[in-house]
Amino acid sequence: MILDWLQALGQRALSFFQRLGRGHITLYYLLIAIPSVLLRPRLLLQQIYSVGVLTLLIILVSGLFVGMVLGLQGYNTLVRFGAEQSLGTAVALTLLREMAPVVTALLFAGRAGSALTAEIGLMKTTEQLSGMEMMAVDPNKRILAPRFLAGVISMPLLSLIFGAVGIMGGYIVGVGLLGVDEGAFWSQMQANVDMREDIWNGIIKSMVFGVVATWIAIYEGNDATPTSEGVSRATTRTVVHTSLAVLGLNFILTALMFGD
């Protein structure tokens, strides 16, 4: 009984480490294929379009609403202490340090990551990747690496746009609807938001998330069982694993960056 249980545990651990190993091999091939992507910017452009530009709308809308909610809730809390002038600071710091990188990464996993996994998984299922290999075209260079690089480039841009739009949302609610003084809103924000400490650290976070989210999406697609069920499971795994990885990493990064 205990032996069965131990065996099951061992099997799980082994398959986990196998997946981890395959994932790192995938990452290795992605990284060494990057120079050949840079030689063919047109492929990269096409992928930035489908990974980044097509995710832009959901980022704009979500950013605006998240910023507006932060404005509303922040005002309700701050006004009790007569500190509603600090609304700009509260909204900007919450957005730039946490919300913009994390929510962007989560939305990215749902919109672009799942699409990447499904696309690559289907290309594998329909033998397109295999066929490419037989035409002496390396799918790592032609298909996977351009998508990886596009994700890594797009994520910080999306996160910046999310942050800017979110602050606009906070401004609309705070200054436009609730009557916080406009000058105080901006000047308090400027006094307390630091370029390096807050904005740059937020960008670093979203770069890390960009690597992780795109890596997971590409690995799951490339590792999918070549059946329609296998692809659908891989797509689900992409969203779940990316979300967990982003939230976990966010805690670690926050502790490292703002911990002291």
């Binding site: 289907l122 329909t126 033998e127 397109q128 295999s130 490419m132 290999e133 037989m134 035409m135």
Partner: peptide, 28 residues
């Protein structure tokens, strides 16, 4: 190099679904 001199016709055809017929043939 050797594979460039071999053609393999997959059972499914394995055409690239995002390219049209002309571009598929032009691909290699």
């Amino acid at each position: 190099q050797l594979r460039k001199r071999m053609g393999l016709l997959f059972q499914s055809g394995a055409l690239l679904t995002d390219l049209n017929v002309f571009e598929n043939v032009a691909f290699p």
